[in-house]
Design a protein around this nucleic acid. Structure first.
Lengths: 212, 212
DNA sequence: AATAAGTACGACCGGTCGTTCTTTTTCGTC
DNA sequence: GACGAAAAAGAACGACCGGTCGTACTTATT
């Protein structure tokens, strides 16, 4: 089977466009994103975008999917290289903060920005954001549950509660890093998780000060 | 001294408009807020709004100020009725969650929404939001510091750290209450603070299960 | 009674929005 | 080298955007 170069070109274009859309959406919002602006940024025509997506909403949905892929690559996959348990939880949190600190996206966090933007905008886009957030929450809870199963966290731990608190530290990190002092925000987010895990984990040597 | 009826009428109108603007901004955003939409909602003409504010930006700034007033009335003042110390900290947190749970604003939280919206939009509006968030943070830290001074929290406590964590629980509460299950979100936000304060406070009777 | 100020209106401006249609260019396939 | 589908451009659309204009009504001052 040979690859059709024409389709390949389209696929390549789509990825480039969506990466730009994710970045732009963190600045202008996913609703606030305008096709003319996006086209200008990419140096293509507005109508050229419609060759790939029938409507703005279709592009918005594709943009959410692309952002999920990026999140997978930048935060989740690196964390999976750490051993299961509290070290993996910490690795995930650190990867997230590193992602914010590296300023990969000009507006901070795609999901934080868009979920607040769409929390009162019913429709398919919001539904997809809700879905992504739900899956992220489940993933976090699974990691915490694994740590409990390994005996690295108490057996009677309220797993969703700790997952909630970990995510809260992360959300606040990106918010405060953009509005107030970034370094302070990152430090507090890291310290918050460290404090929390150390108070719970019977084996504190798993949580050294530096990164693993 | 008599009250000028013209000025009184204008002041009344301004308050009505700004209350609507605060509410609308939680749905459409502070940038996404359109003057035509706001005018239609209020049943007035678009140009009538320009009689009170010279530009959209002027109205945005006034809207932020009005939102700060509302936050003062709904969250801060009620909390000040609780005795200083951990009980006041908890009262503040509870007032905030009650505010979210009562769905006073259709889009959740004015500040959460607008701060994420403007984190990459330089200008006077962002500056005012930054200022408001900075003052809120200082207020939170002052409350924590008071609890330390009263001996209700450890003398060596990292005050800004705890303030960060408290605010993080609140932010996440409004985010998750809109995207996922509201009751779970509120419960986790409340439980999070209770766990944290109980672990730190040498006098746990100050933190009964129910509200004061 | 005349004047001035504050409030509010409808009409309209140039510009941008998302979208559609038609046309041209690109490029792998036959 | 001709064919044809995918990609991209260009022009145009109705709607809405923030903003300005002149005007009219209300109310306080003189």
């Amino acid at each position: 089977m040979t690859i059709d170069g024409r389709l390949a070109r389209g696929e390549r274009t789509r990825t480039v466009v969506l990466d730009a859309a994710v970045a732009l959406a963190t600045e202008a919002g996913l609703h606030g994103l305008s096709l003319g602006q996006l086209a200008d940024t990419l140096g293509v025509s507005k109508s050229g975008l419609f060759a790939h997506w029938r409507s703005k909403e279709a592009l918005q949905l594709a943009t959410v999917d692309r952002a999920v892929e990026q999140w997978q690559e930048w935060i989740i996959e690196p964390a999976l290289h750490a051993p299961r348990g509290v070290r993996r939880i910490r690795a995930l949190h650190e990867a997230r903060i590193d992602f914010y600190a590296a300023r990969v996206l000009p507006g901070g966090c795609f999901f934080a920005n868009t979920e607040f933007e769409f929390n009162a905008r019913p429709g398919p886009v919001r539904d997809r954001l809700v879905d992504a957030y739900g899956r992220w929450t489940l993933f976090l809870e699974r990691l915490v549950h694994e740590a409990v199963a390994l005996g690295e966290l108490p057996a009677d731990l309220d797993v969703p509660q700790l997952a909630y608190e970990i995510d809260a530290l992360g959300i606040s990190a990106v918010m405060r890093s953009r509005m107030l002092d970034p370094d302070t925000a990152y430090r507090q987010a890291r310290q918050g998780l460290l404090n929390r895990l150390r108070a719970l984990c019977p084996e504190p040597t798993l949580l050294t000060e530096g990164l693993s």
